[in-house]
Structure formats: C-alpha cells, structure tokens
Amino acid sequence: MTDTTQTTQQPDAADILLSVRGLSKQFSTGSGPVKAVEDISFDVRRGQIVGIVGESGSGKTTAGRCLLRLVEPSSGEAIFDGVDLFSLPEKALRAYRRRLQIIFQDPYSSLNPRMRVRDIIGEAIDTHGLAKGAARQARIEELLTRVGLSPEHARRYPNEFSGGQRQRVGIARALAVEPELIIADEPVSALDVSVQAQVLNLIQELQRELGLTMIFISHDLTVVEYLCDEIVVLYLGRIMEQGPARSVYANPRHPYTRALLATAPVPDPTVRRERVILQGDIPSPLNPPSGCVFRTRCPHAIAACAETVPTRETVGSGHSVACIRQAELVETYQD
C-alpha cells in the first residue's frame, strides 16, 4: 500500500480505494421510472476527500447510498479494494459494511432518541464483534474523546446535546468500526457556521490522523472548495464536470458549474461577479430533457444539445466536462 497523500499526485492504480463505474439507479414511481442517477463514474484515492456537489434532485444522496447499498443500484460497479461491492451477496457484504461508513446530515433524526450515547456507539462495536467488556468501554470513551466530547457524555441521550455535539456522536459511531471510507452526506449543512467550522476541523483532523478517505456530499460550494481534493458536479443525476477541485474552481468549463459558482453567495460585498443567473426551475426527473439534461436552462444551448447525450471530454489533468460546446465556449469565458 502506498502512503496516503495530499493533493498533487499522479493517478496510480494502487492509490485508488474505490472506483465507481457506470453507476445508475432508477426508481419506479406511480408516474413512471425516475433515473435518479445515470451512468456515474469516478475514482476515490486513498486519503483524499472527494466532493459530490449538486442541487435538489441531482442524485447526490442516492449515489452515496448506492455505494453502501443502503439503496440497491440498478447497474454499474463499485470496485472497493479489488472487490465489486454491487455484486457481493448480502452475507459477504457485511464484512465490507464495516469498512465503509456513513454520516448523515441531520444529527436529530439519525440517532435513536431512546438509546444512550454509549449504546449508540457500542451497538456498532458489537455488530462487528470488535471489543467486549472493559475493552469495549474503553473504546467508547476513547472515541468520545477523539471527537471532542468527554467520557461522561456516554451516559446521556441524544436530546441532551446540541446539534454540533450530536454530529460528533454520529462521527464517533461511524469511527467505532475503524472504517477506511466515510461517506458524509451534508454533515455540516444543518449546523450554524461557528459550529460548522468546529466540525470541519474535526473531519480534517480525523482524515489526517487516521488516514481516512472520504466522499463529502454537499450543496455548499464554499465548503467543498475548501475541504475537497476532487469534485464531481451532478445535475439531474448526471455528471456535468469533474476533476481536481483546484482545477475545476479555477477553470470551470461546464456552463452549469460556471452558473453554480457565479450564484453561490460569498461573504464579501465588494465582489461583483459575472452574473450567470439561470432561468427557470430544475426540470422534473420524471421527464428529463433529451440530450444534455442541462440544456433547458443553459444560456449556451443550441439545437444539437437536444440530440445527443454529451460524452466526457478531458480538458486538463483528471479534469473532464460533459458539454459538446466546451471547446468553443472556452473563448467566451475570457472576459
């Protein structure tokens, strides 16, 4: 195994902990099938944080849940340490469940209100038979300390904690089974900014000290720019653009990414940005546009955009864009 690394490194197969290929998920509804996620592929390298960003209906939460098979994917592969998680039988999957954990957005609904913190964390330890008796007790205390709580908190119930503290309990529960990959679904979105900063610092400490790999699902572009090494931009279940976060933020090449970045509010009244305000609403996933799903709101759409689903084109090292006009549009971006 190679060392975990920081941001600038050449892709190396041995570095890749999770490789997602062609992930699709269709839900059948009373009004017909919904393609929540359609043909998503990306790699997650060891020790990195990959951000998945998108608005409502982008499929970011469904994609995360498919990787853990909390939602069964319709097709595709997720090669984790050499094994396809999607084709594992239920029994064999259990061993992998320990290695991949999830942290949820809402620390209010994701912790059982009738269980004490020590039982919430202990349950994860017991399920995988990791420690017993005094060792189990010591492990729970160690985890609480590790996430910035104190051993005395073990006796308490979730409702005795603030939102930030609950999210720390959720993180401790995820860490209890010593996972290699954590999928964090909007873990700081429900928190006030001052508390959000505390939790973001905790996530980074854990990532560095435990060598954790993380998929960070978020709608907050400011947080993702700061925290993530790689970024995947989703719209209506499809990848619009992906690549190293620095490259995508410095040089966004998809009209949707550009619009997202232009509309995300920044706390600086002197910033007067190029306003790319998208007209209209996100279309219903029940009836997505033909060709490029973004074309109905795209300021640059032409007739051809309705004809074909754009393929990914590489525009830089590890940076790719799904837009048939990306090459000609790049000139219009230089203001």
């Binding site: 409502s56 709608h219 572009l221 997202l260 509309t263 509010p265 998208l278 007209q279 609403d281 996100i282």
Partner: peptide, 11 residues
Amino acid sequence: LDVTIQAQILD
C-alpha cells in the same frame, strides 16, 4: 432554495 433559485429570488 437551491443556489440557482436563490439567486433568482434575490435578484
């Protein structure tokens, strides 16, 4: 609201 819709409403 989503950010692109938020931008419309603020505008």
